[in-house]
Design a binder for these strands. Sequence first.
DNA 1: TGTTAGCACTCTGATAAATGGAGTGCTAAC
DNA 2: GTTAGCACTCCATTTATCAGAGTGCTAACA
Lengths: 344, 344
Amino acid sequence: MELDKRKVVILTTIIKNYLETGEPVGSRTISKYSGLNLSSATIRNEMSDLEEMGYILQPHTSAGRIPSDRGYRFYVDQLMEKHQRDLVEVKSSMLERVDRLETALKQLVRTVADNTNYAAMVSGPSVHKNKIKFLQISVVDVRKLLLVVMMQGNMVRTATVNLDGTEELDFNTVLSLNLILNDELAGLSAVDITEGRCAQIFARSRYKATLRAILETIKEMLGAEAGEPQIYTSGATNIFKYPELTDSENASKLISALEKKDELAELVREADVDSQGGSHQIQVYIGEESPLQNIADCAVVTANYALGNGMKGTIGVIGPKRMDYEKVLEILSGLMKEMDQAFQ
Amino acid sequence: MELDKRKVVILTTIIKNYLETGEPVGSRTISKYSGLNLSSATIRNEMSDLEEMGYILQPHTSAGRIPSDRGYRFYVDQLMEKHQRDLVEVKSSMLERVDRLETALKQLVRTVADNTNYAAMVSGPSVHKNKIKFLQISVVDVRKLLLVVMMQGNMVRTATVNLDGTEELDFNTVLSLNLILNDELAGLSAVDITEGRCAQIFARSRYKATLRAILETIKEMLGAEAGEPQIYTSGATNIFKYPELTDSENASKLISALEKKDELAELVREADVDSQGGSHQIQVYIGEESPLQNIADCAVVTANYALGNGMKGTIGVIGPKRMDYEKVLEILSGLMKEMDQAFQ
DNA sequence: TGTTAGCACTCTGATAAATGGAGTGCTAAC
DNA sequence: GTTAGCACTCCATTTATCAGAGTGCTAACA
């Protein structure tokens, strides 16, 4: 069977209607609102076909139809095509006057959640591919240094370095160590800090134990598994606006996922991979497609942002399957564009 | 009417039973489990009295009784007394090998949530009363400095300082500015940075615009309204374990409160005040007593911790009114003790 | 051959009625 | 002061009823 023009119109009408109301939609409704001027009986025949083809399904006999995952998928694919063509510009002053990426991200995720009315997440740029702008050590006490690293994009990380206290560091030593470290490490990302590079650094100073401790800390701090994956979320409570997600079971899982964040990290990874394969940088996962295990009945839209200097991250929106894809896609792609401009 | 011994036993039995089951408890149940060897009829008479005295109430005629806020209050007060005497020691290796307070707090709040099965929050020590250990500025570019401040307790704050670019800062200038700033500011807290102090600093260098910008940033960073109040939460999903909190309305409000955090800040402030008035450092708020507006049917237990060097913060547990107060009090007071030891 | 009207049928969701159980308050007896 | 007994109340759960919405099918129509 073929998905002809008329079927497409009917399918789209069903989906749009369902997105709005969340109620199964019946033949009479479509007959009235599709603009096709067909009787409900005819529509019924077509719907029967659509169901057979797997685009829609009935919650039970004698109920209207709701979109299946496949139906959503079709609809979203259509949207994406259209979207490719005209990228909508979202005006927003959100990124003004923000001089640190982290602050910007927190604001960002809040804005996205507020505007979409869904839950939102954003991952900080993956640090380990991120380049060091400069770094600095200072003495806290005999056994402890404070290490501050500023990355491209003015992201700052701090850590303390524990020493064994055998090497005494006077003021000038610290100064020279700072010089050496900056000299050798500026412009590098974590993966660039190889054994060879370390050896080269050791060669330039006699405070090898200290340097080793510092380098270890840097690697740990920037390494792939560095702590939490730096994910900010917002708008978790928005999910209570959608009855189909609000039963205790679902809500608990969703909130938990948003709180735990390690699952979200999985999502970020997935989005990253998918976008490299495909051509879009915006992904839509519907129901089972989602990398988020054990949260069903949800749809996830992710967008990867790139900041030009190799830093990449992901913004995601999590909501019910019947989310307003069009709006979400608009908001995200507008945002992408703005971020590109703001952080060259 | 007097609250004699027998009434106390009955009240306690009601509360304990209700804490476990969450169901109204009837006279027969008490007759069996109170150990009083009284018939249900007698119990009924006593219950009638207790209700008149406001300690318990009936959800409806012909249901069992549940504790009123006043009933809980009585029970908790009793517990607190007992608790004053024998402070239970909680073994926990949680605070080992943690060299930065923030990391410790995140772990801490998670542990509390996991152990209690309620939602937990912890506030970082209030920064503005916190003393500067040392600080450091570095040049990012002509118009931007990086400012790093380490406080007592090894808490680190960073911020960027925007300059107008009129004063050119060479290496030695930065060095001397660093010296001056540390010289003048080390050991001070935000409130100590007065106008007079600033003037004194300006007198020591000709880079006044730069110094002004730096001092402004420091004040902003450490000031009373500095950004978010540094609150970490965990275990929000635990509330789904208690049916009475799980209806969409309540759950939404609670999760929202935990997400927004500004309400929690209110709680922290309140806990701080209350503890100064009273003698305990552990507070229990039941129902309406809670400073958290618009979340009813909850109880909140807060404990203030002090780190000896003037830094203070609050740990809180948020759960249903029928929370296991005994356990929570034990855990919190154990924790207090441990923190005291760990961070002298 | 595609479209439509009509009809019988099904399923749901809401509302109402029936039932059983748990618990109370009161009275009278111990 | 305590207890047994009884009538009464209220809730939660089940069962029944019913209207509404929607479908599928058939037969008629253009």
